[in-house]
Nucleic acid binder design. Structure first.
Lengths: 231, 231
DNA sequence: GTCTATAGAGCGATAGAC
DNA sequence: GTCTATCGCTCTATAGAC
C-alpha cells in the first residue's frame, strides 16, 4: 500500500505525489491543457509511473475526481443532517450545507478549493468521461438537496426548484473557476477565493432568489413593472 | 474583401468559413480541445489558410472573440437605452438587457448561443490571452450595468452589487456552458438551451436576490430566521 | 488565395533493464 | 517500483509551387 511516513517529514509515495500534482494542474489548466510529462515533472517522478499506476492520463483524472468526491458529498450530507437534527432546516441552512463544503473542502495551501475549480474547469471541456463521472458521483447527493429544498419551498414546482438549483450551481462553479474580474473591479474588496466572505454573500442572495414567487410558466416575460418587491 | 454571394446560395470566402467553424468548435471543446486541422476540415478549407489569414491558432481565437463582442455589447446597450427612454428602468429590465443578448445573440442553427458558450468554456482555461480579451472587451460594458444596478438598489454598497453581479455572471456562464444535468434530472422539462424559458426563470430569481437586504459585512453568516448555526 | 509538403516539437503510451 | 529509451502519432507553423 502507501507509505505515509518516513523520517520526520511526511513523504508520500510516488502514487500520492502524482495524484496531488494532477489535482493541482488539472484544476489550473484543464485536462487538455496539461501533459502527463508536466504532471510527472511537478510531482518529481518519472512520467512512466502514470501509466504504471493509473493506466494512462484518463485513468489518472478519474482517480483524482473520485478521490475528492467522497469527502465533499460526505461533508455536505453531514452538515445537512446536523441542521436537520432538531427541526426542519431553514432554507439558509440547506444552502449552507451544500455550498460551504464546495468552498472549503480540500483546499490547497492558498485556501482555494482545488476540487471545485477542477469541476468547474472540466465542466467546460465536453468530455464523455467527465459526464459519466459527474452523474455517477453527484446525482444522488443532488437529489437529496433538491428534495430538501422542495420541502422548504412548497410554493414552487419541482421544475422551478431545479431551475433555481441550476443557477446556484452556476454561482458556485463560476466562483470556483476564477480568475474573477470582480476582484479587480472592486479594487480587491470582493475576493471570491475567500470561502467565508463568499458564503456570507452568496447564501442570502440565493435564499432570496429561491423565495421569489414562482415564475409564470412557460416563457413569459417578466411583468413586474413597478417593482412589487416581494420576498 | 469578402465575397458574400455566388449563385443562389450564400457562399462565404475561406476566411469566413474558418471563422464560423472556429467559433463552433472552440465553443464545443475549448481552445486546447480543437486543432487547427479540425477547424480547417470542418470549414472545408486547407489548414494552411489559418496561418495565412490569422497568423496562427491564437490569432484565430482573438478574431473570433472580438468578432462576437461588438454585437453582444451593442445589443445590451441598445436594450438598456430603450428601457431608460421614459423613466428609470426597473431592476428586471436592467437584468433583461444584460442577460437576454447573452442567450440570444449569434445563435447557431440550434438556437444555442455559441458565443456565450465560448466565453464560458474559455473562462476555465487559464490563458493570459483570454484574460486580456475579456478585460479589453467587457469592462466598460460591465461598469455601465453595475452603475445602473447601483442606482436601482440604493440600499446596497458597491461591494454588494459587485458580489451579486458576480453570481449573475455565474448563472449566465454556467447556463451557456452546458451540458446541463437539470435537463436530465427534470426529465427534459427544464431546458437551459431555450433562451426564452431560461430568461423567464432567471430574471425573477436574480431580481429577488439583488433585492435581498445587504449581507452583514464582512464575512458574517446569514442570520435571518432563527439560525444561530454558523461556522 | 489556395494548395502540397514537411519541418520541428511535443504528445501518450509502453517495453524492458534494474 | 522506478528508471531509460523510444515508438508512433499529432500538433502548429511555414516554405514554396501554382
Amino acid at each position: 500500500m502507501v507509505k505515509v511516513k518516513k523520517a520526520n517529514t511526511v513523504v508520500e509515495g510516488a502514487r500520492e505525489k502524482i495524484l496531488a500534482s494532477a489535482a493541482q494542474l488539472f484544476s489550473e489548466h484543464g485536462f487538455n491543457g496539461v501533459s502527463v510529462r508536466d504532471i510527472a515533472a511537478s510531482a518529481g517522478v518519472n512520467s512512466a509511473l502514470v501509466g504504471y499506476y493509473f493506466g494512462g492520463k484518463q485513468g489518472l483524472l478519474a482517480e483524482v475526481y473520485m478521490r475528492h468526491c467522497t469527502p465533499l458529498t460526505q461533508e455536505r450530507a453531514r452538515l445537512l443532517k446536523s441542521f436537520s437534527r432538531d427541526a426542519q432546516p431553514t432554507l439558509e441552512q440547506i444552502l449552507e450545507a451544500f455550498i460551504r463544503p464546495s468552498l472549503e473542502v480540500t483546499t490547497d495551501e492558498h485556501g482555494r478549493s482545488t476540487f471545485t475549480r477542477l469541476r468547474a474547469i472540466l465542466s467546460g471541456e465536453n468530455s464523455a468521461l467527465l459526464e459519466q463521472l459527474v452523474a455517477d458521483n453527484f446525482d444522488k447527493s443532488i437529489r437529496t438537496f433538491v428534495t430538501a429544498l422542495a420541502k422548504c419551498l412548497p410554493h414552487l414546482s419541482r421544475e422551478d426548484i431545479l431551475w433555481r438549483f441550476h443557477f446556484l450551481l452556476g454561482a458556485v462553479y463560476y466562483t470556483g473557476s476564477g480568475p474573477h474580474r470582480i476582484y479587480a473591479l472592486s479594487h480587491h474588496h470582493c475576493d471570491p477565493s475567500d470561502p467565508v466572505a463568499t458564503a456570507s454573500e452568496m447564501i442570502p442572495f440565493l435564499a432570496a432568489g429561491f423565495r421569489a414567487p414562482a415564475a409564470d410558466f412557460p416563457a413569459r416575460s417578466p411583468k413586474p413593472k413597478a417593482v412589487p418587491a416581494k420576498r
